[in-house]
Amino acid sequence: MNHFELFGLPVSFELDSTSLAVTYRELQRTLHPDNFAAGTERERLVAVQKSSQVNDAYSILKSSIQRAEYLLAILHEDIRGEQKTLQDPMFLMLQMEQHERLEDIPNSADPEQEIADFDDELSQSIKQYLQEFAILLNDENFIAAADVVRKLKFVYKLQAQLSTLEDSLLDY
């Protein structure tokens, strides 16, 4: 049973997040180990396993990037454990530029603003890539879709690094 089936949803990138959250709560209402606190060891064990499964599926479906990767995995190829880098020279250049930009922030005049601006740009990038992915997936152009996901992963990682930088620079 894949995650979409578990939640009674169609296998597609577009998702009704409200409906997802409602189903999640209903599933946990039934399966959560707290329901079996007065029950047997065996029931608690099964509840913990099932409840964990639901939590796992929910976190994957809820996150755009994880949902995208998961869709690729069930429809085409699982690229989640991939170690190789994208062989796109333009994109590699962009990666280097972005990293340099990140490294320069601590020395800039207004790091807080720099971080906010950079973060906004990355969020915009992500939005565009996600739209691109949805279209490619609908057209079943899986190879191209996989490349978009690889780019997305890089952008998300950069955003996370930006966040860590923010934590270390702005210690209130």
Partner: peptide, 26 residues
């Protein structure tokens, strides 16, 4: 002995939850 029974009950609960029916608790 009751491992299988527990698992079936869980699956039945999941199906019920997805259909929006109320589920009896243990």
């Amino acid at each position: 002995l009751t491992q299988e029974f527990a698992a079936r009950r869980m699956d039945a609960s999941i199906r019920s939850a997805l259909q929006g029916q109320s589920v009896d608790k243990v």
